[in-house]
Write a protein that binds this DNA or RNA. Sequence first.
DNA 1: CGGGACGTTGACGTTAATCAACTACCGTGG
DNA 2: CCACGGTAGTTGATTAACGTCAACGTCCCG
Lengths: 249, 249
Amino acid sequence: MAAGQHAELRIASEGHPSVLDQLRLAIPGVVRSVGADQCIAIEGAANDAVIGVMSGLVRCFRMTPDGRRHICRFVGPGGLVGLGVLGANRHSVETVSQAQIVFFPATAIKAGADKNPAIRTAIFDALAEELDERDRAQLRLGRLSADERVADFLLELFDERGRNAASSNLIPMTRADMADHLGVTLETVSRAMHRFQRMGLIRLTNVRNFLVTRPALLRRIAAGDAGIAERRPRSALAMASAPHQAALM
Amino acid sequence: MAAGQHAELRIASEGHPSVLDQLRLAIPGVVRSVGADQCIAIEGAANDAVIGVMSGLVRCFRMTPDGRRHICRFVGPGGLVGLGVLGANRHSVETVSQAQIVFFPATAIKAGADKNPAIRTAIFDALAEELDERDRAQLRLGRLSADERVADFLLELFDERGRNAASSNLIPMTRADMADHLGVTLETVSRAMHRFQRMGLIRLTNVRNFLVTRPALLRRIAAGDAGIAERRPRSALAMASAPHQAALM
DNA sequence: CGGGACGTTGACGTTAATCAACTACCGTGG
DNA sequence: CCACGGTAGTTGATTAACGTCAACGTCCCG
């Protein structure tokens, strides 16, 4: 283990070697190199493989009949797509950038999970983490203003890179991709980022890179903390009615 | 098995006996009766139990620091909360109505999954289903208009009851709860429902019950099909750019 | 009958979508 | 090297959708 070449390897999860690494050791998978903006899987199609992202970035999305797109998640190096499927793909998958992709046959995954407890645990943890990610995304879409959503997303990129305020963070996708993930328009994304720049929270070194100059403040906006963004969405919850201690156990 | 007493039992999943039933047979759990609007678990608190809902309804939610609430999901009879947690609760849980709740110790769940393959599969399926539910919710929050969201939610209630257009469907939660799940205000929920009534799509037999008089049309609105709701949210996706056949495999 | 929670409805204001023009930045080829 | 075209991004003007505020109705339970 040559010490700290670059912090590029880690992503997705906290300390442990990524679930993908574990799967790669235990389960034979087919590796492919795929160019940018290529379709890897289609929503609703029969599913027989779990996809691992070794390098690059993919987007997972659903579409409405009239062509609106929602990007459920972006998956980068170390991430898995399609775990726990019930026969059909939950969403379409496309590459955002050129990527190295591993295809694990669903049967091999199942067999691996059955006989190897470590694999089983790893998959469980990956599923749990994915659910947590979804809960965050839902709160963001449901109860944050446009500015707050963009701030939260920028911090996600920032945190993935290891929280280094000094070094610049890559924005690996287009404004349109960001917009379709955050439930706003690309114009709104652009305006929010430039507003943050004018406020001195970030610096856009170029269209695909940014520095976080005031992480704490950006984080308060992203969290949905009152008083930063003046007019924030109101939840319907009547504050008085929330009984906030556990009734039992 | 006395034939078809009421269709009340089924919910959550398709045909198979619910995951909860399977767990109840294999794993000892503590059953409690809980009144309406009681707190069962708190977001972020250490987690040592998986919760099963035997009767009644619970809401799972997260809050922003300034008190906005987002209800990630409602869980009814047969449903499970807290599967695949990594030590801390992903969200708070409260009863919506009086409910029968089972608490399964996390250790017992883990042990059961380790030695019983059927349990393991059942849990996997439950997790997969939960992810699917989240993807739907995300698309709804991110890319549907207020009316479309309400229509989609009403259809969810409708479908759970077995798609019977003739019998009236219960709305088991308040307008505020619906609003905090759909990312709109309670006034918007109220207006949307009454608009649907005026359009002849549904009939509100009383504040907590409705009939679906035109399921097909309601379904088209909910799906986000063009031309029904005039102005619908636009996704940022440039239609021309979507490469919609699989590039490989 | 009175109080309180829940729900509806209306008038108004704000946020963010829409529409549109314009700029920057490629890569390609004359 | 510069013209060309195409994609991505920015910015401004306008407006629709939805949130906000507020009044009022309804139901239920004591």
